[in-house]
Design a protein around this nucleic acid. Structure first.
Lengths: 239, 239
DNA sequence: TAGATTGTTAATCGATTAACAATC
DNA sequence: TAGATTGTTAATCGATTAACAATC
């Protein structure tokens, strides 16, 4: 469960800066999440035609410290120019490469409810290289219907289609009671990563990556914060 | 942005155990998230009629260490019974109280798309005391329609209705470009907490609590994990 | 050159884990 | 009593911040 590998962190500076990403040290969750924010911000800068952006500008836009930004960015390479800042294009490219957004990901979706429809319709995913290649549901009434241009397949098609399409990622939007069973099927079918929205703690083998988004937990977090806000200094959370 | 208050943490043991929650120390984000998991697990135990549950059982079910569970639970009170474990009912009640689930929260929702419909339909929220009292949208075509028994109101009704209904929480499911503007209106209308789904970093005053769920970030996390999985020992993430 | 800004180090802060006396 | 399990302490681990020499 916990991350075990951190030995090689401080070994990085020793390495010559030949290829852009020479066996980069493992990045922490928090760092990876912030890289996503930086990328979004930098892409906005690119659009406005800016030729440079400083750690301070990035920090102010995102509500973190400039030191944090520099630390995060230094972890993925020597991308900055002392006295200048970062060049949006260079930076965006480097972040995309680290996050794996410089390629196409084939994604299947299991469980076609409203949440699934929202995700399928969200154009932001496609823009970053995530392409939905198949959707599945167990409800006979839904099978054969079309959502966002995709035919809904029965669960019996899960394994063969994932194999045939070479899908790497799956989004799980089934009810809690069905989630573990479907996850097991996805794992067996060779899926490499699962984004789970079912409110359960899933168990998958260590060869498969798992990110869970638990909306109930988020709303409960909010209730806790509100309840403890007046007394305390407020703090906000970004997941 | 960062949490500033932590002085009183180790001062807690000094305090006599009179009332159930005597000025409880501030809990970390991570702890609050785990409390939500514990609650869910404990509620399942309650349903199966279990009369006790140990930190080890809880830990195994959720993939954390038993020490972690005891630490988290000790932070909200002396709830365990040495040699026995925790009593599900007592524990569930204590967690509910800490998270503010022992009361009713009035929630408004702004932006009626598929994500909103999914959230409105999700029964889990109601079960924990979150009640949707109004929904708003800026699209004239949607105004006056009904979703899950609620009439969709125009944005001009936001301020008066929030005041009239005494709504405390808001869920923001509008497009990115509209999010900050709507957040400002919600703040002005007296909302105490916002659960934001728009993929932007929102700015709200420190008197208002904010939790953001950024689905793009989560999918990018997954891509990063998959990309770095084979080489590394795998780790999974629960938000 | 003077001013700006990075990458990196050391210091700080906070969260997790291991271990065990106290307790039922 | 013997066995089980908590709450708490100390040790460890990791992440953030501050400061500044190096660089453009």
């Amino acid at each position: 469960m916990r991350e075990k590998a951190s030995r090689n962190r401080s070994a990085v500076p020793v390495r010559p800066r030949e290829s852009p990403l020479p066996l980069a040290a493992r990045l922490s969750r928090a760092t990876v999440a912030r890289l996503s924010w930086y990328l979004r911000q930098v892409q906005m800068s690119e659009r406005t035609g800016a030729t440079r952006i400083s750690s301070r500008e990035l920090a102010d836009a995102l509500g973190v410290t400039a030191a944090q930004v520099r630390k995060d960015l230094a972890a993925i390479g020597s991308l900055g120019h002392p006295g200048i800042g970062y060049r949006p294009q260079e930076l965006a490219e480097a972040i995309r490469q680290v996050l794996g957004l410089d390629r196409t990901w084939s994604v299947v979706l299991v469980g076609v409810g409203n949440l699934a429809r929202a995700l399928l319709r969200y154009a932001g995913f496609g823009r970053q290289g995530f392409h939905f290649v198949a959707v599945f549901d167990s409800d006979p009434a839904k099978i054969g219907q079309t959502v966002e241009g995709l035919t809904i397949w029965p669960m019996s098609e899960l394994t063969p289609r994932i194999a045939a399409l070479g899908a790497q990622l799956a989004i799980l939007t089934v009810p809690a009671h069905a989630a573990q069973g479907v996850a097991d099927q996805l794992v067996a079918a060779g899926i490499r990563g699962i984004l789970n929205f079912a409110p359960v703690v899933l168990r998958v083998p260590s060869t498969v990556s798992l990110v869970s988004v638990d909306l109930t937990v988020q709303l409960e977090q909010l209730a806790y914060l509100v309840l403890n806000a007046t007394a305390n200094g407020e703090s906000s959370r970004h997941s």
